[in-house]
Design a protein around this nucleic acid. Structure first.
Lengths: 238, 238
DNA sequence: TAGGGATGTCTACATTGTAGATATTAGGCG
DNA sequence: CGCCTAATATCTACAATGTAGACATCCCTA
């Protein structure tokens, strides 16, 4: 009578009688696995054993592995909150950018999915969760006074820059944080000095990358430039 | 005696006696495979059979599959020519950007590698071929009068934007080019109208994406903004 | 002509995604 | 209360992958 749901067919004694699964639970377990052990650790069998389930059962919640990956990206993007009614579009875009940056830093192993999956899925067939930010930002810009097609231009430049920045920042990677010489810390000592003089000389600058402010400066340039070149609404700051 | 090199142990008669391999030949075959059939078609066995060789032999030219992928990205980036002595840095960066864009359009299946591989390899350990553009652009900017650390800032903003644009452009994908209604062409008809009104309304604008000019406009904004915010050299146009 | 390092080939194995058959459960109707 | 049906869970099996390790063969040099 320990497990009220089960009529004692399963005698083996492995106690964990599992509560009903759901797509959300599965995806969250998948995300956890990716966060902790990387993308290639997310296999059906590993995920199954993380959930104490038969791997085959997971196919009820994701048609195949690709769909599972899509689900994970969707789950991550859901963490991004967009308030489409803020009239300060520049401020709003700035906030979103920083939010997405932090999200990427929190889930670095998911970033390849974020940038890669859409490349193999036509716009109209993507998971809705990944299209929602696009729709919402378009709404934000249109509400702020942009033409629909100008809104699209702004969105493209903005999102392009944002994703590019995130990729850049995640790439500049510290090999050995214990080392205090910048050249060594970044592994740049391997590079032939003749061929890569400036890269090597820039080691210290590379080593202290302030991603947030670098992103912010770029955004300032880009957003004000966009505002100037297009049918810019007047609003600027709260 | 048909095959002079072989002392008649191999009787089966498959005639093609293969000329000596080289890393370049292997990588070029790999690139061809990726271009024609996509990334996941690049397996050791498929590549082996494309070269009429035993798959195991390929491990002499690439330590493992990951190294093979790195080699392919290196090969592709080698197509990019950078002339570090041009004093018109803006013009030069513009040209490079368009070159890289075209390169990406020519090898769309390689783009995931371009943006993804560096994420799993620390800067100092990357294939030299992928670091060369960075070094050269730094040289270009420094020669044009930028501080070394300003050059790095410019590079980051520039390359970030460029990669972002390329990703963006490759993502906006036509599902059914035969269809002449934009909504259908992009597969957007699947989206619930209530939730995605602007995206659906923008279908025509999405359908004719002029990547080159979109890239160019973004660059104009970004480069002139960067020049204004930093220790900008005076030179502008040839 | 003999040796030896480089190069090529074969077999084998662990791991993956996933199809398909089979067992087990839960709920509705007599 | 008991059976039938559909959902759900589990097992077995298979083809494909990367790659280790043993073996065979080549070709150049001495």
């Amino acid at each position: 009578m320990a497990t009220p749901q089960q009529p004692a067919g399963d005698e083996a004694g492995s106690v964990t009688r599992k509560s009903r699964l759901s797509r959300e639970i599965v995806l969250e377990a998948a995300l956890k696995l990716v966060d902790e052990e990387g993308l290639e650790a997310l296999t059906m069998r590993r995920l199954g054993q993380a959930l104490h389930r038969d791997p085959m059962g997971l196919y009820r919640y994701a048609a195949n592995r690709a769909a599972l990956l899509d689900g994970v990206t969707e789950l991550v993007l859901d963490e991004l909150a967009i308030f489409a009614d803020d009239p300060d579009w520049q401020g709003q875009l700035r906030r979103i950018a920083h939010d997405l940056r932090l999200l990427a830093l929190r889930h670095p192993n998911v970033v390849p999915l974020l940038v890669t999956r859409p490349l193999s899925t036509p716009l109209g067939l993507r998971p809705l969760g990944t299209l929602r930010p696009l729709e919402q930002i378009l709404g934000l810009l249109i509400d702020a006074g942009f033409t629909a097609s100008d809104a699209l231009h702004v969105y493209r430049a903005y999102y392009g820059f944002l994703y590019g920045h995130i990729l850049n920042e995640l790439q500049e990677f510290i090999v050995d944080p214990d080392e205090n010489e910048a050249l060594l810390r970044l592994g740049l000592h391997r590079l032939p000095p003749k061929e890569f003089p400036r890269l090597r000389a820039l080691a210290p600058a590379l080593a202290d990358y302030d991603g947030a402010s670098e992103l912010d400066e770029g955004l300032t340039i880009l957003l004000s430039g966009l505002a100037a070149h297009l049918s810019a609404p007047l609003v600027k700051k709260g």
